[in-house]
């Protein structure tokens, strides 16, 4: 019986609450290379902490929806979101704001890539993709799913499940590339930065798979901050935070995202994303 008591005490202690300290917490998922997340972003936390004068902590998350949930539950007050997840998060937390975006995110784009056996050549006009097999990236990705789906549907004038013979969700940009390279799917949509990096590193055999179309530009990743930070961390905190993010010049830190630099952003920059998400039925 003693043991049962001990287990009970142990389990009960889980329910006790830990004292609240005023720690500013953030999360980020980079669009490429998720290795060594904590090591990389703890450095960003140190930088933010030095500049802001508060304790800053990084929480690693696995998916955009987990990041949105953590943001909504106020477990993180600042998050590096993709275009779509940012819109989702700001709809769930009234008063939250997009304050900065990556330099590249002002004119982000997606590539459509095809396996060589399709004999599709790169074009400026939208290619004919009917009856091929097709893979998106992750379901909630802006550059791997939302925008490609929108561009395809608006160019062809049909819904994607009518256009393609088979549709998959690879779950990741790198996986989209490897699957189209292997011919598992004939055509795929991918984040342009991930593709360019993979080509640069020689991780992809461009005789097997290549870009056949690039999308018009759209806004993507951004920093979104919770509504209540000025109240918790003192007046003017949000402004100071914005300046600190934009003032991040250390290449080592910026490489974690990976972005050239950060520039100011606002909620209205992401209205196109919201419209598109509604148009294809991903938002109500």
């Amino acid at each position: 019986m003693k043991f049962t008591g001990m287990i009970l005490a142990g389990v009960l202690s889980l329910f006790s609450t830990v004292a609240v300290s005023e720690t500013f917490t953030f999360t980020a998922i980079p669009d490429e290379d998720e290795s060594q997340l904590r090591t990389r972003f703890d450095k960003v936390a140190v930088y933010l902490s030095e500049q802001l004068g508060v304790e800053v902590k990084y929480i690693p998350v696995k998916s955009y929806s987990a990041a949105v949930t953590a943001f909504r539950n106020n477990q993180v007050q600042l998050a590096w979101f993709g275009g779509l997840s940012g819109v989702q998060a700001r709809r769930l937390v009234p008063g939250s704001e997009a304050i900065a975006q990556g330099f590249e995110d002002q004119f982000f784009k997606s590539y459509i890539i095809a396996h060589h056996s399709t004999e599709l050549a790169a074009t400026d006009s939208f290619p004919v993709l009917n009856d091929y097999t097709f893979t998106f990236g992750s379901k909630d990705s802006t550059s791997g799913r939302l925008m490609p789906q929108y561009f395809i549907e608006s160019n062809v004038g049909q819904s994607v499940d009518k256009i393609f013979k088979r549709i998959g969700f690879s779950g990741d940009h790198s996986r989209t590339i490897s699957q189209v390279e292997a011919g598992v799917y004939q055509v795929g949509a991918v984040n342009y930065k991930v593709w360019d990096t993979a080509v640069e590193k020689g991780d992809v055999d461009t005789s097997k798979v290549n870009v056949i179309w690039q999308s018009p530009t759209y806004p993507d990743y951004q920093w979104t901050v919770h509504s209540g930070v000025d109240k918790t961390f003192g007046a003017g905190f949000k402004e100071k935070l914005t300046k600190t993010l934009i003032g991040m010049k250390d290449k080592d830190l910026l490489d974690s995202f990976p972005r050239e630099s950060f520039v100011p952003a606002s909620n209205s920059d992401y209205e196109p994303i919201e419209r598109v998400a509604k148009a294809i039925g991903m938002l109500d």
């Binding site: 290379d33 290795s35 696995k62 987990a66 790198s174 996986r175 991780d203």
Partner: peptide
């Protein structure tokens, strides 16, 4: 459970295989 964010082996395992870091 690591696949959805618990700090277990699956957290790293899933990322590594999803992103093609096969040595890891």
């Amino acid at each position: 459970l690591g696949f959805i964010g618990m700090p277990t082996l699956g957290f790293y395992l899933e990322s590594a295989f999803r992103q093609g870091h096969y040595q890891q």
